[in-house]
């Protein structure tokens, strides 16, 4: 890529980021989702500290862990931000003017996914900051910021997965509400199904790698790998699952598989987006 081409590319990307900034900052839905998740974060920090009287040094970690571990939170946070990333343009008929400008579909699609990730990171950063400030104000210096950061990076991957899932559906179905509810419906069905199976027959490796279900284990796996990298990864709810892999290997597997899922989802969405007719309303 020539220097001028690169300058033009970054200028266009900045324009796309600016476009999404206005979209997000002026969207009541995103603000409500943000406030909701922020409220849950604060409530959890207070709950862990005052009601459950968790070890004070763990409060921040537990508050951060809820981001990735609780399933519904990453789904709300990720899906609400990306549900209309592509489909809104189809629904409102604005693509025809957007694509009369010198940008390709490839640039637009991947630029949009990049911008969604950037704004998700900003949201997660602000939420984490709020959880950190609350736990710091009430319970003093935590002294476990490194472990919290590891868990946070796992939560980010979990949220990115849900966001990408809805983002791809938004490009495939061209309908924002459908994208959100299909994500929600598949997640609910899989979560109940896999949950019941696990209760009856115990956990298997595929449980941890099932899309929309297994992502919730990423922060836990990373935390275990950070604390005891060479110990065997085990998980216990009702029955104990022994992976036979070290924590570090298991975390590599679960992270790698989810990065692969994200890539596959992005490409699938792109293929549909590339073939979609641009229509006027």
């Amino acid at each position: 890529m020539k220097v001028n081409d690169f300058k033009t590319f970054t200028k266009k990307l900045k324009a796309l980021l600016k476009y999404d900034f206005y979209r997000n900052i002026r969207s009541l839905r995103i603000i409500i989702a943000f406030v909701l998740v922020l409220a849950i974060g604060i409530i959890l920090a207070v709950l862990y500290g005052f009601v459950l009287k968790v070890n004070k040094s763990d409060i921040f970690i537990m508050s951060i862990l809820y981001l990735g571990e609780s399933n519904i939170v990453p789904l709300i946070l990720g899906s609400l931000l990306t549900m209309d990333a592509i489909s809104a343009e189809f629904e409102k008929g604005t693509f025809i003017t957007t694509f009369s400008k010198p940008i390709t579909r490839k640039f637009y699609y991947f630029g949009k996914s990049f911008s969604s990730f950037i704004y998700l990171l900003m949201e997660i950063f602000l939420l984490s900051l709020a959880a950190f400030i609350i736990s710091f104000v009430f319970f003093g210096n935590q002294g476990k910021i490194d472990e919290a950061m590891i868990i946070l990076s796992g939560s980010v991957l979990t949220i990115f997965f849900y966001a990408t899932f809805t983002f791809a559906l938004s490009a495939i179905f061209k309908n924002s509400i459908a994208s959100f509810f299909i994500t929600f419906g598949i997640w609910l069905a899989l979560d109940i199904g896999v949950g019941l199976y696990s209760i009856l027959y115990g956990y298997s490796l595929w449980t941890f790698l099932t899309p929309l279900v297994g992502e919730t284990f990423i922060p836990i796996a990373l935390a275990d790998a950070y604390k005891n990298p060479n110990a065997i990864f085990k998980y216990t709810i009702f029955k104990t699952y022994n992976s036979g892999m070290t924590n570090i290997n298991f975390s590599f597997l679960i992270v790698g598989v989810n990065i692969l899922y994200i890539a596959i989802l992005l490409i699938a969405g792109y293929i549909f987006f590339l073939k979609a007719d641009i229509k006027e309303q």
């Binding site: 206005y22 002026r26 604005t94 025809i96 003017t97 009369s100 309303q281």
Partner: peptide
């Protein structure tokens, strides 16, 4: 498209 100025029949723009 740098060389074309296009006006669609029903121009729609992001309302926000």
């Amino acid at each position: 498209k740098k060389y074309i100025g296009y006006l669609p029949e029903f121009p729609r723009f992001p309302g926000f």
